[in-house]
Measured scan of single mutants.
Amino acid sequence: MIINNLKLIREKKKISQSELAALLEVSRQTINGIEKNKYNPSLQLALKIAYYLNTPLEDIFQWQ
């Protein structure tokens, strides 16, 4: 199972779901689904999230 800290990191950086979704060219619902662990992002999307949040990938997504 993958645990993610996306919501915590996104809120710490004061970025809304809508703003992050626009940067990543995905829907706000996609961001919401990832934050709620409804599904895991593709590797490409995970890397883009880490890039736009300027945060190491392993700080956002962790195996458990």
Rank of each mutant, 00 (worst) to 15 (best):
V26L: 06
P56S: 06
L43K: 14
L23E: 10
V26T: 07
N32Q: 06
Q17L: 12
Y52D: 02
P41H: 02
K13G: 05
L8V: 15
L6W: 00
M1D: 04
A46R: 06
D59R: 08
I34E: 00
I3M: 09
P41G: 02
I49E: 00
D59K: 13
A46K: 07
R10F: 02
Q64K: 10
E11F: 05
L47C: 11
I15A: 03
I9Q: 06
A22W: 06
Q44V: 12
G33V: 09
T30Y: 14
L24D: 00
T55D: 03
S18L: 14
G33C: 11
K36C: 13
T30V: 14
Q17S: 06
S42A: 05
I2G: 06
V26I: 11
S18F: 12
A22N: 11
M1G: 05
A22H: 13
T30N: 05
N5W: 05
A22Y: 10
E19H: 10
I2D: 05
I3C: 08
Y51T: 13
N32F: 08
N32H: 11
D59G: 07
N40C: 08
E35V: 02
I2S: 10
Q29E: 15
T55N: 04
N37G: 11
I9L: 09
E19G: 10
I2K: 11
A22F: 12
Y52T: 11
Y39K: 10
Q29T: 09
T55A: 08
N37C: 08
I3K: 14
E58Q: 11
V26K: 03
G33D: 15
K38I: 15
L24R: 01
S18C: 09
I9M: 07
N54E: 14
K38R: 14
L53Y: 01
Q17Y: 04
N40Q: 10
I49T: 04
K38Y: 11
I60E: 01
Y52C: 09
L8F: 09
M1R: 04
L23I: 14
N54D: 14
K14R: 14
L24I: 13
L24K: 00
Q17R: 08
L53C: 04
V26G: 02
I2F: 11
I3R: 13
P41F: 04
P41L: 07
Y39H: 13
I9D: 02
L43I: 13
E58A: 11
I9V: 13
G33P: 01
L45M: 11
I31C: 02
A21V: 03
Y39R: 11
N54Q: 14
Q29G: 15
P56N: 09
I3Q: 10
S27I: 02
N4Q: 04
S16Q: 07
W63K: 05
V26M: 06
L24C: 10
E58W: 08
Q62T: 11
K36E: 15
Q64V: 11
K14Y: 08
E11I: 12
L45F: 09
W63C: 06
T55C: 08
I2N: 07
Q44E: 15
Q29A: 13
L8M: 11
A21W: 02
